[in-house]
Nucleic acid binder design. Sequence first.
DNA 1: ATGCCGTAATTGTTACGA
Length: 281
Amino acid sequence: MRLATWNVNSVRARVDRIVDFAVREDIDVLAMQEIKCKVEQFPLEKFEAAGFHVEAHGISQWNGVAIASRSPITEVETSFPGMPGFAKGHNGPDAPLEARAIGGLIDGVKVWSLYVPNGRGLDDPHYAYKLRWLEALRGYTHAILATQPDLPLALVGDFNIAPTDADNGDPTIIEGVSTHVSAPERDAFAALEAAGLSDVVRPLVPTGFTYWDYKQLRFPRNEGLRIDFILGSRAVADAVTAAAIHRDERKGEGPSDHVPVVVDMDLADGEADDDLPMIFG
DNA sequence: ATGCCGTAATTGTTACGA
């Protein structure tokens, strides 16, 4: 399985670029974030014409996530258990959920496309919301791997955290002042790893950014951030054979400000192997 | 070079982004 994640910054504004990439790179599963449309506005036909099934979750012009897959997607969920909500003036336990998560089972792999809240500012209510959201995601991960430790689980998307200083090449993003690089955010990311996930791209692609702001020549100057990740359970990590960050997708006409991150997985059918008749035995 | 903000509500301006 070739699995990709991409914050597309509007699926309608660049659907042809997205589908062209998925076809050209022979992507099996493409997790998208910031589709920026309602489900009924999603350009389904162009994905289906290219041979993809699509599950999308979008409720307004903000946020929105989707998964396009060559194999059918089952067990679709549009939030994970415990996921908090947020709205202006309504930040409590009953706040409405945003369209920031969609999960499904694809060829035995549980895939989640995630758009972690931005945070906006260290003193902003959105920052506390971001940390609550990440803690809920950690709790979900811990719970599911406690009961299914061998599950191939992939949490992919825009985590809006630069986990190390090497992941921050933007001179305007400063520790102590900015979101994305604060200790609580980095601790929250590390807690996901402690819950049983690992970044399956970094061992194969140790450096490089996945996002460059549209302003201030950030891309030509290569002043970006690495904030888009593919986190996998042990079963996923053991299956990964290759990884890539498609930096070239930031070039040309009408790019997203993020680029796709891709892994190849060689997934043995663990249970099926045990059931195979011993023809040669 | 990869080039100086883009998108989607809306129709002048605001919200959002990282």
